[in-house]
Computed example of a mutant assay.
Amino acid sequence: MTLFLAFLGVSFIVIATPGPDTAITIRNSLLGGRAAGLMTALGIACGQAIWALATSAGVVTLLTASEPVFMAVKYAGAAYLVFLGIQALREALWPGASEHGDAVPQAHTRLSAFSAFRQGIISDLGNPKMAVFFASLLPQFVPASGATFSALLFLGIVFSVLTFVWLAFYATLIAKAGDFLRRPKVRRAIEGVTGMLLIGLGVRIAAEHR
C-alpha cells in the first residue's frame, strides 16, 4: 500500500506538470468545445495505456534497445507536434474569414470528436519519452517479488486513468469559461501561445538525447 500511495503521489506531480498533452487538450477544447477536449484526453489516456501494455510485455525494452526505431518514433512524434503548432499559429495569425470584431462565434464544430481523439493518441504514441518514462517508473513501485505483467499493467492503467481525469478537468474548465475564451481576440492569443509551445516541445523532443 505504501508503494502504491507513493506511486500516486509521483504520478500526480508528473501529470500536473504542463506539457504537450495539456497544450493539445486546451487547444482542442477551444476548437471543438468540451466534447473535443474530452476526446483528446481519452486519446492521450489510450496512448498511455498502450505504452503501459508495451512496457508490461517487454516491447518497450526492445524499442529502447533499437536506436534506429527509437529515433524514428521520436522524430515522427516531434514532427507531429510541430505540425499541430504550425496549425495553431496559422489560426492565430490568419483566423477564419467569419471571425470579425469581438462577437462570440455561435458554433465551434471545426474539430470533430474523432479528429480530437486521433490527435490525442497520435501525439502520445509519437512521444518515445513516454516509453522510457514507463519503463523507468513502473518497476520502482512494484515489489521485487511481484514485478509481473499484471502488476506493471495495473500501474500503467492507473496512470492513464489519472491522466484522463486531470485533462478532463482542463477541458471542462475551458468549456465553462466558454464565451470569453472563444472571443476571437482571446482565442487567437491562446492559439498563438499554444502554437509556440507545441513547436518548442516538438523541437525539444527532437533535440533531446535519451
Results as ranks from 00 to 15, higher is better:
G96E: 15
R118K: 11
S150P: 03
I205K: 09
A23F: 01
L153I: 07
L152P: 00
Q119S: 14
F117I: 06
P128C: 01
F12K: 03
A113K: 09
F164R: 11
P105L: 09
A78Q: 02
T163Q: 11
A168M: 08
S11I: 06
Q119Y: 04
T109H: 13
Q48K: 02
A41I: 06
T17F: 14
A35C: 12
F133T: 02
K176H: 05
F114E: 08
G37P: 05
R187G: 00
F169Q: 11
F4Y: 14
I190R: 06
F83P: 04
I190V: 14
M196E: 06
Y170K: 07
P95F: 10
Y75R: 01
F169Y: 11
S145H: 08
F134T: 01
A36R: 03
L167D: 10
D124A: 13
K129H: 02
S160R: 06
H100C: 13
L155F: 03
G58N: 01
V203I: 15
L152H: 01
G120H: 03
A207W: 15
W166L: 11
G32I: 11
G101R: 12
T22V: 04
G85M: 07
V203E: 08
D102T: 02
R210E: 13
I199C: 11
T25L: 09
V69P: 06
L201E: 14
P18R: 02
A16D: 00
M196F: 15
A65P: 03
A171G: 10
L89N: 07
A54K: 01
P20Q: 13
G101E: 07
K74F: 09
A41H: 04
T22P: 05
Y75L: 12
Y75P: 00
T109Q: 13
T64Q: 12
K176V: 06
T25Q: 12
A151G: 00
M130E: 10
H100K: 15
L138I: 05
H209R: 15
T148K: 07
S150K: 00
T109V: 09
A189Q: 02
S112T: 14
R210G: 09
D124N: 11
I122S: 01
G192V: 05
L8V: 14
F133A: 04
G33Y: 07
G146F: 03
P184I: 13
L152C: 01
V59D: 06
A189G: 04
M196A: 14
E191S: 12
L173W: 10
W166M: 13
I26H: 05
A147T: 04
L84P: 10
A49F: 07
E91P: 01
K185Q: 14
I15V: 11
R187N: 05
L89D: 01
A97K: 12
A151M: 01
Y170M: 15
V10H: 05
L181D: 03
L89R: 05
P20K: 04
L173V: 15
F149G: 02
I15L: 08
S29I: 10
A16G: 07
A41Y: 06
T17A: 14
P139Y: 03
L38A: 10
Q119L: 02
G37I: 00
T172H: 14
A35Q: 08
L3I: 09
F133E: 00
L138K: 00
R34W: 11
T148V: 06
H209M: 13
L197V: 15
M196Q: 05
E99Q: 12
I44M: 03
A116H: 08
S66A: 06
I24F: 03
S98F: 01
L62R: 09
E67R: 07
T40A: 11
E191F: 15
